[in-house]
Design a protein around this nucleic acid. Sequence first.
DNA 1: TCGTAGATATACATATTTGCATGATCGAGC
DNA 2: GCTCGATCATGCAAATATGTATATCTACGA
Lengths: 298, 298
Amino acid sequence: MIEPDWSHYRAFVAVLREGSLSGAARALGLAQPTLGRQIAELERNLGAALFIRSPRGLVPTDAARDIAPHAEAMAAAAGAMMRLASGGTDGASGVVRVTASDIIGAEVLPALLGAFRRAHPAATIELALSNRVEDLLRGDADIAVRMVRPSQQALVTRHIGAVSLGLYAHRRYLEGAPPLRSLATLARDHALIGFDRGTPFLREMLTRLPLTRDDFALRADSDLAQLAAIRAGFGIGFIQHGIARRDPELIPIFPGEIGFTLDMWLALHEDLRASRRLRLMMDHLAAGLAAYVAQSQP
Amino acid sequence: MIEPDWSHYRAFVAVLREGSLSGAARALGLAQPTLGRQIAELERNLGAALFIRSPRGLVPTDAARDIAPHAEAMAAAAGAMMRLASGGTDGASGVVRVTASDIIGAEVLPALLGAFRRAHPAATIELALSNRVEDLLRGDADIAVRMVRPSQQALVTRHIGAVSLGLYAHRRYLEGAPPLRSLATLARDHALIGFDRGTPFLREMLTRLPLTRDDFALRADSDLAQLAAIRAGFGIGFIQHGIARRDPELIPIFPGEIGFTLDMWLALHEDLRASRRLRLMMDHLAAGLAAYVAQSQP
DNA sequence: TCGTAGATATACATATTTGCATGATCGAGC
DNA sequence: GCTCGATCATGCAAATATGTATATCTACGA
């Protein structure tokens, strides 16, 4: 076996993402025959067929699926290096890539990132919404906002505080629903919104509450989907207080009687600690999120 | 900024490792001017100087040091893909890369790996000795033998058992040393061998023993160095029972009175779970290590 | 049934990259 | 002070990769 040309892995990732040589060629700004030849040579060098050619595109083989995560890791690393280089000898300029859970990224971060951008117009910000913690180690992102303590070594972490969640429902839902009697009868009388499979962490949380998975009328692992369902008047579910309180139509249910808290953490790869613009972003997020945490108490 | 040709990152890693264009060229099987031009273009594309040229070689700049870990990650991923591809559609053939702490790798694994090789002659085995846990996530290795529970998600783990350690000394040392009186006077009368900075985990272990760092006459973080020192008759130190009992010249010191245990774990990246040869190796190691653990009880 | 859109494969001229040979520079050691 | 050995830089011919244009195939829809 011959070590393949690394640029062919770039072609491989593009074909994998786009599903066709032509699409990958467009994405990379190359010609379609070029990609065809690069993939062919990659297959020759690795000694394995990676795609089944068809007139509809290229279908990855098992071998391709095996190596795909590593190729994606290469792409992530390459992206990280470009971000690093874009900052030059480090002013506030350059790209900062932030990853967060979808709900934080959609409801809390936009305002904070906007303020950062106004303070540092030379900065470019990328926001990636995902719950995968390994993103930082792989270089998929520079800074992560997480609701679990990042356990990886090689990560610099910063504890922001505890965010509390409580039950809320939209005013529209409550108008047409039976009266709220007691916590014990809640699941019987009302449409509850909760987690489907959930993360191990959240599942543990649920065991401390007087609710089980079967009590939920709508189960979704996406926080955003749950929030949207509550806002749409589907029923009753958990929302972070800081988010719910912005909307006067969202009514707290049994406040003080039921709820739980999540710790919020910021994490940074230790290799990036020296970067000035990342430290600026880190400080800005820490301050903004701390303010958010303060608004999120029961 | 232009996205650099990924193959130039390969050149970058080689230059970083070898310290010169000529050396990198030899390592990669390319010509020295080729490497020079590739590095030059990488610098142009990233918009940053990566090396200071000198007649003695190339010295990396800060920018180079910033991106170096990511480039190394690319190299690790590329290596992982080659290993995966070498296994083909998965018989028992191909490369298996195992990482373990140095002492396990030197004292316990060789016999196990030899047996595996005899059972599966088509397999090639690589053994990397290191205590870094992130190796698996980066793709530096396929299977890890660790003495701490791997915490990363995306890792499939398997608990082997608890290995016990006790104090041992070589017969030669004891012949010329003062008599063994009591545990309390051990540090005063004898040359003790222990950890220097140690891992956080081992440091915590030490707090449970009636010994402190200052009691050690020889401090080394390398388990192998400690073992060698004990075998050479330097003094008294901790050895895993299973290793010490193979050598009748190694005499247990206060057996049953002092010691501690370490849990042994096998870990595999979840992306590799499907590979047949890795499962074979995993099962083989699990069985062999379990036998070793059985011999390592107090 | 036929035409269209989108896909992969092939042919050939053109760019680009590579390797070899050579020159230039610096430090170590006698 | 000089040579030796190592390095990086440069010029030029050959090998290689790329792009354009074209042919071919298949699914989809009028």
